[in-house]
Computed example of a mutant assay.
Amino acid sequence: MSEPVFSIFPNENFVDLSLYQYGMEQCPPAYSFGPATRNHYLFHYVLSGTGRLMANDSRGISHEYQIRSGEGFMIFPRQINTYIADPKLPWEYIWIEFDGMRAREIIETAGLSPDHPVYHAAYKDLRENMKDEMLYIAEHHDAPPFHLMGHLYLFIDYLSRSSSSQMTTSGRVRDFYIKEALNYIEQNFPNDISIENIASFCGLNRTYFGRIFKETVGKSPQQFLLSYRMAKAAELLKLTDLSISDIGNAVGYSNQLHFSRAYKNVYGVSPREWRNKNRVMK
C-alpha cells in the first residue's frame, strides 16, 4: 500500500478562493475517519474502490451514502461527518480543502450542498479533467503558490461543468443577480457604496436582494461587504508599507478611526497590532 500524500498550502494571501490542504490516500480495509467537523470545504474524489459517508444535512439529520469509483463527496464547514472505507474493496481517493468568499457560490453552482453532498458527473471528459487537476495539485506541492492557485481554479471550473446538477430557471436568474452583485462589490469596494447602490445596480428591491444574497452567499450584503473590505485591508497591511490611513482609504474608509474600529470588530485587534504580528518581511 502506497504512503498517503499530504500537503499544506503555504500562502494565505488569497481572498476569493484559497487552498488549504490537499493529498491522496489508499485507505486500508474498513479505515474510518470521524465523527469530525472541518473549518473549510473538503472535496474527495474516489479514484478506485468504494466506501460510505455519514453526514448531517442542513437540519442536523444524519444520512448515509455509498460512494464508488468515479464519484466524490463534499464535506461542508461545521458539518458532522464520518467516512469509512469498504472492508473488501477500500477506496483510494484524492482530496482538496479550500475556502474563500466565492466558495459557497461556486459549490452551489455545482449542485452540492449539505443536503446533496455526493458528486455525480454528467460528462466523463470533464470529470477526467477535474481528476487530472486534483492529481496535479497533489503531486506538485512544491510549485509556486500562484501556479497552484491557477490549477485550483481549473479544478473548480471542471467540478462545476461536469456536475449532473440541473439548476432551475429561477435558480439561474438568482445566480445571475448574485454574480452581478459580487462583481459590483469587487469593482467598487474602495468607494462609498451602500447596499441600496448594489441592489439598484442589480435592478432589485433592497429587501428582496438582501434575502436572496444571504440565502446564496451565507452572509448578509452588509456582512459580506465588510468582510471583503477587511480581507483586502489585511492583504495591504501584510504586504505593503502603506500607512493605516491610506489603507483605510483604499478599502472605502475616509475616516481612520472608523476603519480601525471596523477592523478590530472583524479581527479582534487594531490594524497596527495586526500588522505587527503578521507583516511579511521583505
Rank of each mutant, 00 (worst) to 15 (best):
M1V: 08
S2C: 06
E3Q: 11
V5D: 13
V5K: 14
I8P: 01
V15R: 08
M24V: 11
M24C: 14
G34Q: 09
N39H: 11
Y41C: 06
L47S: 14
G49V: 13
G51C: 04
L53W: 07
A55G: 10
A55K: 04
R59Y: 10
E64H: 10
R68G: 15
G70T: 09
F73Q: 04
M74H: 02
M74C: 10
T82N: 07
T82C: 04
Y83T: 02
P87E: 02
L89Y: 13
E97F: 00
E97A: 05
I107S: 05
V118M: 09
Y123M: 08
N129T: 06
H141Y: 11
M149Q: 08
G150C: 03
H151S: 05
L159S: 01
T168R: 07
V173P: 03
R174K: 15
D175R: 09
Q187V: 03
P190E: 07
P190T: 06
N191S: 07
I193N: 00
S194C: 01
I195M: 01
E196R: 12
S200H: 00
F201V: 00
G203S: 02
R206P: 10
Y208P: 01
G218Y: 07
P221T: 00
L225D: 04
M230C: 10
K232N: 15
L237Y: 08
I244S: 11
I247V: 09
N249H: 15
F259T: 07
R261Q: 13
V269D: 08
R272V: 12
W274V: 04
